[in-house]
Each structure stands twice: as structure tokens, then as C-alpha cells.
């Protein structure tokens, strides 16, 4: 690691914050000295932070600050990018998921992901949800599968809207519905962690509000990490917030504290709109 800087301070901060602020939660994912390189260019510098269970962690920061790249480390999606290299340790339940022995396919069934642009498969609503459980062999019968589909759609708050047209293509839904379908699709494989990469940036305010409500609901069962451009959204939905800048983790803490009493000058400048 040739870069030092805020990383050490953040590590101390993370450990500190983790115990003090959220008494009910404990770290689900513990990242230590995570760096990401695209070919020779380093995009994330030595980031260490803890992500708590049954809470929403928001990653904020200006464009190109590495927050999405960091998010993609958590389910090894960076593996699919040519030339991307991730160093450091990411512990989930005591296992280093960044180890070459970990099967990224298995990992991704435990760490679901929702993308910026809704990307339902061009198949029926039913098949969109059923695809994950099918390939993982999680169901034995058609009835089980029906139950999983219904449960997932209910949890994503979409069941009432689509229960009569499950055979219609997922792409025929509205943008907000498509995004909730993608969330249902992620839920269907019973993940422990759900990663959301700017899930509302392609949606209108009403659809955004629905997704935010849904995130708040899902927090009770899952560990959620959300990347967002909107500081208001981070403030509304998250319990913990991490501020990234130029690939570095600048500050991490309880959302209230970050927004009302940031410790770092750069954080304050960003949330007050002085840059970004």
C-alpha cells in the first residue's frame, strides 16, 4: 500500500463508532485496507470500515469518488471487470470474502445487489423472481417456487400491483415498479446483505419515496448498503453514513452525527454544498 492518509484515522473511527452508536447492531461486514485498482489506476485507497447488520449504511460522496467501486467489492462484482484488482480483507461472518478460495457465485447469492437503472430480465415477472431460486436449487416444487415469488414480491411491496399479471414481461412495468421488481429478485435468493447502487437515480420523486419506504422496511431483516448521490436520501433512509472523496474514506459515523456535526472539514464542505 503506497497510500496512507485518512485510512488510519478512519479505522480508529470505525471501531469507535461501531460500539458506541448502534448498541443493538454489530458489524456484519468488516472491511480492512481495501484498495481497488483498474489496471494501473487506483480507484479506492485503503478503505477500512464496518457495516452493521439490520441497518442501512449510506455511502455518499461526489461523482467518481469510488463509492460504487467500493460497493462492488462487497459482492465481488469487480471480478467481472477486466483489469480490476481488489486488495485488502473483507470479513463477513469471520470469513474473508476477498480470498481467492471464496466462490463469488455463492457469495453473490448471499449478498444481493440492486443497480442504478432497473434491469429486469426481459422475461415474465414471475420468471424474474424465480430465476435465482431456480438456479440455486432452493425450491423443490412448483408450489414452493410460487410461495417464494409471492413472499419476495410482498416484501418488495409489489405483490398487490402485479399479482394478476405475473406472466407479463417485467419490462412492461413502470420504472419504479421495475426497481421494486429488481429488489424482489434480489430478496428471492434469501440474501443477508443487499447492496443498492443509486437505486433511485432513474426514478421520479414518488417512485423514489416508495423505494425509500421499502428500504426502511427491509432494514428490519437485512443489512443494507446504499450508494446515493442525494444527501437528503442518505439522511432519510440510513442509520450510518460513510463519506468518500477521491477514493478515500473521509469520515464514517452515525448519519445524524455526519449531517449535524461532521468531524472532518471536507465532509462539512460537501454536505453544505460547497463542492461536489
Amino acid at each position: 500500500m503506497d497510500t496512507v492518509g485518512p485510512a488510519k484515522a478512519d479505522l480508529a473511527l470505525t471501531g469507535e463508532g461501531a460500539d458506541k452508536t448502534q448498541a443493538l447492531t454489530y458489524p456484519r461486514i468488516d472491511c480492512r485496507n481495501v484498495s481497488v485498482y483498474y489496471d494501473d489506476k487506483q480507484a479506492v485507497f485503503d478503505v477500512s470500515l464496518a457495516i452493521h447488520d439490520r441497518a442501512v449504511t449510506a455511502l455518499i460522496g461526489p461523482s467518481g469518488c469510488g463509492k460504487s467501486t467500493f460497493l462492488r467489492c462487497l459482492n465481488r462484482m469487480n471480478d467481472t471487470i477486466e483489469g480490476a484488482k481488489v486488495t485488502g480483507d473483507i470479513f463477513m461472518e469471520g470469513e474473508n470474502i476477498n480470498s481467492p478460495d471464496v466462490d463469488p457465485v455463492l457469495l453473490r447469492s448471499r449478498v444481493g445487489m440492486v443497480f442504478q437503472k432497473p434491469n429486469p430480465f426481459p422475461k415474465s415477472i414471475y420468471d424474474n423472481i424465480a430465476y435465482g431460486p431456480r438456479i440455486h436449487g432452493m425450491v423443490d416444487s412448483r408450489e414452493d417456487l410460487d410461495a417464494v415469488v409471492e413472499k419476495s414480491l410482498r416484501r418488495a411491496g409489489l405483490w398487490e400491483e402485479v399479482k394478476d399479471r405475473l406472466s407479463q414481461p417485467g419490462t412492461s412495468l413502470s420504472g419504479g415498479q421495475q426497481q421494486r421488481l429488481c429488489i424482489a429478485r434480489a430478496i428471492a435468493v434469501r440474501p443477508e446483505v443487499i447492496l443498492m447502487d443509486e437505486p433511485c437515480s432513474a426514478l421520479d420523486p414518488i417512485a423514489t419515496a416508495r423505494i425509500e419506504e421499502l428500504i426502511d422496511e427491509l432494514r428490519k431483516r437485512y443489512c443494507i448498503v446504499i450508494v446515493t448521490h442525494s444527501m437528503q436520501q442518505a439522511a432519510r433512509v440510513s442509520q450510518r453514513t460513510a463519506f468518500f472523496h477521491l477514493g478515500n474514506l473521509v469520515e464514517m459515523g452515525d448519519t445524524d452525527q455526519i449531517f449535524t456535526n461532521p468531524r472532518e472539514r471536507r465532509t462539512e464542505d460537501y454536505i453544505t454544498g460547497r463542492f461536489g
Binding site: T80, R108, G112, F121, G132, A186
Partner: peptide, 9 residues
């Protein structure tokens, strides 16, 4: 592709 990979394909 990402969607499929993300559900563990």
C-alpha cells in the same frame, strides 16, 4: 449480465 450475476448466476 450484471443482473444475472448479482442474483448469483
Amino acid at each position: 449480465r450484471s443482473g444475472a450475476l448479482a442474483v448469483g448466476a
